[in-house]
Design a binder for these strands. Structure first.
Lengths: 202, 202
DNA sequence: GATAAATTTTGCGTATATGCAATAAATCAC
DNA sequence: GTGATTTATTGCATATACGCAAAATTTATC
């Protein structure tokens, strides 16, 4: 007998364990107060199949999975995301001035703020821009997600792929798609200081 | 013969069409420069099965899908997200000092920064805390998502459900689960000014 | 509690997914 | 180009998913 609890052997970069499919389905169905029969009607699947999936007795085919999601009015994405709700709730986190965790890179000196929360949707840090010339970057940084910076002090220049560079002053704010190559350099005598917000979007 | 191109009948709230599974797999595999044999080894599946999935000749079981994702080093989420490249990419947004859109509430005066982007994952604004006493709030604010505030000037007190109030000084940073009731009041003579970051988490 | 109704689970036959090994196609060396 | 090697596809046997209908369980009604 097959059960979705069975995990495959760990691979080098194994993602974190997921809620079993059986539980995901049961939860979503019961949240919507649907009986197996109703969901069967909406999805075009048989009651028995649904039952066996919820009991982990059967590994549905992708085709079945698609019908199932459609029947629930969800995209596959939404379906698989639904189980990933962090059990964490009601948390809070305080970082006093200057007490954040420090991270140094060749180009930036970062102080991570309130980074002791596991499921944080936005990373926020105070950054000193050490780089002073674009040539210091062998390649533009580029990743999934979005970023926003707010200038606290100093002057800086933002390079983004596809666009002309932008110069920023204290009080200015700049947001961009992280998929574009990007790099920051200080223009002022002392390194510019910015607040930097980064969201993964995953 | 089965093909993942076949879509089920539209349901009331049908999600947008997805990239066929066959294409998703082929794309991800080729991005990583893997042959069917290599991926087969990494995932514990047979070469033939992979071939048939990529040709839309077979609807893999959920168990197979899990092995497949593990072999690619992806979560199911990441796998299904991968096809959903946002039509929006390569955008950027600049708000100069004091030029953000203003929003007034009884308790706060907000200046929205870079809010002219539709699919922004984090809302960022500069806020003056007008409220001076908890009694001004008939009920604590409470919603989905996460928030973080960074004190720019003034002193303020943060009330959060389940916890004792916290007093913040310039430079302090405070993050919390928005599901907890929360409210901010100024303690200093002039209204405290904070940077406020809010993520929906949806 | 007993009976009825609704809901879920299970037996069984058919359709399909999977792995192995052979075949076909593509790529590389010369 | 021809042959060697790597890569992808296909035939076949077996294991498993799926739907139908019957059985078992749970829930509702009196």
């Amino acid at each position: 007998m097959w059960t979705s609890e069975l995990r495959t052997t760990d691979t080098p970069s194994d993602p974190p364990p997921r809620e079993p499919l059986s539980d995901t389905l049961k939860r979503l169905r019961q949240d919507k107060a649907l009986t197996l029969a109703k969901l069967a009607a909406q999805s075009g699947l048989s009651v028995s199949t649904l039952s066996r999936i919820e009991n982990g007795q059967l590994s549905p085919t992708f085709e079945t999975l698609e019908k199932l999601c459609a029947g629930l009015g969800l995209s596959l994405n939404a379906f698989f995301n639904s189980g990933q709700t962090s059990s964490l709730s009601g948390w809070r986190s305080l970082t006093r001035k200057g007490q954040g965790r420090l991270v140094e890179t060749p180009h930036y000196r970062l102080e991570l703020l309130c980074d002791d929360v596991v499921a944080k949707q936005a990373l926020v840090f105070r950054a000193e821009i050490l780089a002073r010339d674009l040539s210091e970057f062998d390649t533009l940084q580029r990743h999934m997600g979005q970023e926003q910076i707010l200038v606290q002090s100093g002057q800086l220049r933002v390079f983004t792929e596809h666009y002309a560079p932008v110069d920023l002053q204290p009080g200015d704010s700049f947001a961009f798609d992280s998929a574009m190559g990007h790099a920051l350099i200080s223009l002022s005598d002392t390194p510019a200081v910015v607040l930097w917000i980064s969201t993964s979007g995953a």
